[in-house]
């Protein structure tokens, strides 16, 4: 067998050197990406053809009985309401480091409990509902109090805001849980839509006998998803106000018991937190309709990683991360695909 010529030998050495260089560069890129994101390199959201269940990543410990949760458009700020302790809203970065505390205005005094929170996608302002103070407080993205939201128009009932959501144009949707009608005829609870200037533009659910509607989300077509908590159901309102979809209560896997937080991801997948089932249930629409098909759930009762004790709020960012306010475990759980 003849030995390789000097030219061939040289080519071989060059090839090996190039391969090693490529490996080093690739390894450096992976390490760099990992260090910058400090999380498993999750894939983008799975398509609906992939029936995939999220997995637990880590928890942000510390919030006192967290209820509501929201994440900004870029996914680098997380806002969590605390219903215990000093009852403020905490802001965290993507790694779970606390970066700000959002306090109510001084005149609020001690009578306040922040419940739900949402981020205006147009201004990045943070809106916090406080049923006890009958207010929605508006903060800058860095946590500075700006003003109290003043709804304009005839609401028809007392102002008692709970769930918050925005559409892509910055219109604000609020679930209102005012107790009873002036004539004591029963619950008069409904959903309001406000234009960015605060004007009431639409009322949903007037004939639906909503009973403590909590979570709310709006999809890109303007359909509004509302957890009608004490009726153990979720309703989907179309832009014209009719009900085109629902998830009913009951004991089946796909049924709801006491639904609270609601979120939609970029793929249109719907997440509903069932507080007394201690899990998050997932659904997606069938063939473009608003008929919702159950695709699975995650979570169980307990205090271990991935287990919940009365979870309430939920938020999904654009990087396939799912945040759940794990109320009685005093933490926020982070899940991903």
């Amino acid at each position: 067998m003849s030995e390789p010529s000097p030219t061939t030998h040289h080519r071989l050495k060059l090839s090996v050197a190039a391969g090693v260089t490529l490996l080093v560069v690739a390894f450096g890129a992976v390490v760099g990406l990992y260090v910058s994101r400090r999380e498993p390199l999750s894939a983008l959201l799975p398509s609906f053809s992939q029936i995939k269940t999220p997995h637990y990543l880590f928890s942000v410990n510390g919030p006192k009985r967290p209820l509501g949760i929201a994440v900004n458009s870029s996914g680098d700020r997380l806002y969590v309401t605390q219903s215990d302790g000093d009852r403020t809203v905490l802001a965290f970065d993507r790694l779970g480091n606390q970066v700000a505390v959002l306090k109510p205005p001084a005149k609020t005094g001690d009578m306040h409990v922040p419940v739900y929170v949402a981020v205006n996608p147009v201004t990045q302002d943070v809106y916090v509902s406080d049923r006890m103070a009958a207010s929605i407080y508006i903060y800058s993205s860095s946590g500075t109090y700006r003003q109290t939201f003043a709804p304009q128009g005839n609401l028809g009932v007392d102002w008692s805001p709970m769930g918050l959501a925005f559409d892509s144009h910055g219109n604000l949707y609020v679930t209102n849980v005012a107790g009873t009608a002036p004539d004591q005829s029963g619950p008069h609870q409904r959903v309001f839509e406000f234009a960015p200037d605060g004007k009431l533009t639409r009322t949903l659910g007037e004939g639906s006998k909503l009973n403590f509607p909590n979570g709310i989300a709006v999809d890109s077509s303007g359909n509004v998803y509302v957890s009608d908590s004490n009726n153990s159901r979720l309703l989907v309102f179309t832009p014209n106000g009719s009900i085109a979809g629902s998830i009913s209560g009951g004991q089946g896997d796909s049924n709801l018991a006491l639904p609270r937080g609601v979120a939609l991801d970029n793929s249109g997948r719907l997440y509903v937190v069932d507080i007394t089932a201690n899990m998050v249930k997932m659904y997606h629409s069938l063939n473009g309709s608003l008929v919702l098909a159950y695709t699975g759930s995650f979570g169980s009762q307990g205090s271990d990683d991935g287990a919940f004790e009365f979870p309430n709020g939920i938020a999904v960012d654009t990087h396939a991360r799912i945040y759940v306010a794990d109320r009685d475990n005093n933490r926020v759980q982070v899940w991903s695909y």
Partner: peptide
């Protein structure tokens, strides 16, 4: 705490109700 309804006859938002005091 109990949450009550004022039964506001006008059904309008009243700024005096926001905040405390």
């Amino acid at each position: 705490i109990g949450y009550i309804s004022y039964g506001n006859p006008s059904g309008k938002y009243d700024p005096h109700r926001t905040g405390n005091g």
